[in-house]
Design a protein around this nucleic acid. Structure first.
Length: 592
RNA sequence: GGGGUCGUAGCUCAAUUGGUUAGAGUACCGGACUGUCGAUCCGGGGGUUGCGGGUUCAAGCCCCGUCGACCUCGCCA
């Protein structure tokens, strides 16, 4: 037997028992030939084991050769350490194991970095030696949290008649949306499978097939550039329901969120979760996924700006732009001119803003290099509109509407973080509903689907489908947590005629639609119930619950920004033989 | 594809802004120590300054290129 207990288990109640433990040498404290302490570690915790010549003279030469990360098996008696020697930092700190037998199961090379203590090395090294990194308690905690979350999710859905159904990984490429990861077919020369960007079409077909409550913890693949919260392969909690309207789905997911928060964090959250319209959050926060842990809403001062003598503002208004600002409460003295004129100006520049105007509220008046362009009355109007008080910093962006939204919402997030305007452990969820159905794509001179082409138009807006498509709201919704898109879904089109209408709008002609999605359209012609669902980003949920802002820390084997796996060396070249089998010829990009 | 940060001992960082033999902490190796728990004390080894080129009497530092990691814009139905 390799062990009778694990390393986080033994307590004072075990004193006197002879136990066997297995684990990694976390640290050793060598007091000479007669006394050696080892902290033995496994995923459950740490236990101090003691080698003392009084009771184990023949093994201490072996014990003294133990080094960090060696894997050992020890047998010994559990003893109380004594009142003065208890270590309150360890769950097992009241006891220690006096070793009677030691077996070294596996030696370790000196690890490239320390599992405990020491500074974290750069991520490149951590990823290359992921098996060492994953031994760190922080990562173990996240991986365990991830398991707990998936179990809570299964528990919730299983109790409500949902069926967990797997869908294929090798599917058909539907070239719309993200770039596909392709898999060449050996038996169909020149043909390719695509890895799923999401199980979207399959789950709709499952609804047509009568499995009216479905979920799946599904792996998804998107060949797009990465971010701190985006991996090329990620996991979705994929859900679909039939015979439902939007609110049935939102309520079901509300219940899931509450269940998860209860089981993971032991907190009750009030339901329903708040629901805001897209138009509302875009106006108030400039973002479709605003972080609501703090205020700092965007305020429009266009009317005042248009009447002022400040030509920059007036010209922007004259050319269809907007002047909007935020009030950074009490921050007038926290940002120097250099920070405002260089750092923050460059920051908003990344989002297309040509400038950043700022004013400080002092003595009930505005202090600014541009204050002279505003009459006393206009200054008072600005202060009132912005709810300004002495010591406040007012920041303005004057630009095209989209730019003011993008720049100010990014600025809002950055400043709130810098000024610690919220509790990082806070967890604020809300829905954003009524997204537009389509977006105008000026380059392609057509409308693109905002969500996806199977999303149902809001019945109240169908009359605009031909006259003013940009105005049509979709029956779609996102769940936003702390400024992250944590879930996204919609009611789907279950009528092939409506589906065709949407394809027309997206300039997907009937032949093309038939070629790409013919199987779905055909399925919709055989009795499709009203249905809808949601896909939730599991990795992001774990990240948020772990209080992290890096998705790689909640994935056991993540990829780098260039989608490489530094542990295994994927992707890699393959043998010519494999390429021949797949009828693939490689054409490398030309050298410069 | 664009912008930015970084790359110096196994690891984390420093090196007085171009000037002597590139240092510190930690890890590692050896020694001492019978109650430590971030053990302590003594001693030791350890460097292609990511890689390639250039400027200079002289380059870790300046210039060009390149590789890699991270952040970000575009992208991500």
């Amino acid at each position: 037997m390799h062990r009778t207990h694990h390393c986080g288990e033994l307590r004072r109640s075990h004193v006197g028992q002879v136990v066997t433990l297995g684990g990694w040498v976390n640290s050793y404290r060598d007091h000479g030939e007669n006394l050696v302490f080892i902290d033995l570690r496994d995923r459950y915790g740490k236990t101090q084991i003691v080698f003392n010549t009084e009771d184990s003279s023949e093994i201490d030469s072996l014990a003294r050769r133990l080094r960090r990360e060696d894997v050992v098996k020890v047998r010994g008696e559990v003893r109380y350490r004594g009142d003065a020697l208890v270590n309150p930092k360890l769950a097992t700190g009241e006891i220690e194991v006096r070793v009677q037998g030691l077996e070294i199961l596996s030696r370790s090379k000196t690890p490239p970095f320390e599992v405990e203590g020491g500074d974290l090395p750069n991520e490149e090294l951590r990823l290359k030696y992921r098996f060492v990194d994953l031994r760190r308690p922080e990562l173990q905690k996240s991986i365990i949290l991830r398991h707990q979350l998936t179990q809570a999710v299964r528990e919730y859905f299983n109790a409500r008649d949902f069926l967990e159904i797997e869908t294929p990984m090798l599917g058909r490429s539907t070239p719309e949306g993200a770039r596909d990861y392709l898999v060449p077919s050996r038996v169909h020369p020149g043909s390719f499978y695509a890895l799923p960007q999401s199980p979207q079409i399959y789950k709709q077909i499952l609804m047509v097939a009568g499995f009216d409550r479905y979920y799946q913890i599904a792996r998804c693949f998107r060949d797009e550039d990465l971010r701190a919260d985006r991996q090329p392969e990620f996991t979705q909690i994929d859900v679909e329901m039939a015979f439902v309207e939007r609110d049935d789905i939102l309520n079901m997911i509300d219940g899931l969120v509450a269940h998860v928060m209860k089981s993971i964090r032991s907190v009750e959250i009030p339901l329903p979760l708040p629901r805001y319209t897209y138009a509302d959050v875009m106006e108030r926060f400039g973002s479709d996924k605003p972080d609501l842990r703090f205020g700092m809403e965007l305020i429009d001062i266009g009317a005042i700006a248009a009447a002022s003598e400040f030509s920059v503002f007036r010209n922007v208004i004259g050319s269809g732009g907007r002047v909007r600002g935020i009030n950074v409460k009490g921050a007038a003295e926290k940002y120097s001119r250099r920070l405002l004129d260089v750092d923050l100006k460059n920051f908003v520049g990344e989002f297309g803003a040509k400038g950043l105007a700022y004013m400080k509220v002092a003595g009930g008046k505005l202090e600014s290099t541009i204050a002279k362009f505003f009459s006393d009355e206009q200054q008072q109007q600005i202060i009132q509109k912005m709810s300004g008080e002495d010591g406040d910093l007012l920041l303005f962006v004057a630009d095209q509407p989209k730019v003011t939204s993008a720049a100010l919402s990014a600025l809002r997030n950055r400043l709130a973080k810098e000024l610690k305007l919220y509790d990082p452990s806070d967890f604020r969820c809300h829905w954003v509903i009524d997204f537009p159905l389509v977006n105008w794509n000026p380059e392609e001179q057509r409308f693109d689907a905002e969500h996806h082409p199977f999303c149902q138009p809001n019945p109240e807006d169908v009359s605009y489908m031909t006259t003013d498509p940009g105005r049509v709201r979709a029956d779609s919704y996102d769940l936003v947590v702390n400024g992250y898109e944590a879930a996204s879904g919609s009611v789907r089109i279950h009528d092939s005629a409506v589906q065709q209408q949407v394809f027309d709008l997206l300039k997907i002609n009937p032949e093309e639609a038939e070629r790409r999605f013919g199987f779905l359209l055909e399925a919709l012609r055989y009795g499709a119930p009203p249905h809808g669902g949601v896909g939730m980003g599991l990795d992001r949920w774990v990240m948020l619950l772990a209080g992290d802002d890096n998705i790689r820390d909640v994935i056991a084997f993540p990829k780098t920004q260039k989608a490489a796996d530094l542990l295994t060396g994927a992707p890699s070249g393959v043998d010519d033989r494999q390429l021949r089998d797949l009828h693939i010829q490689v054409q490398l990009p030309e050298e410069k």
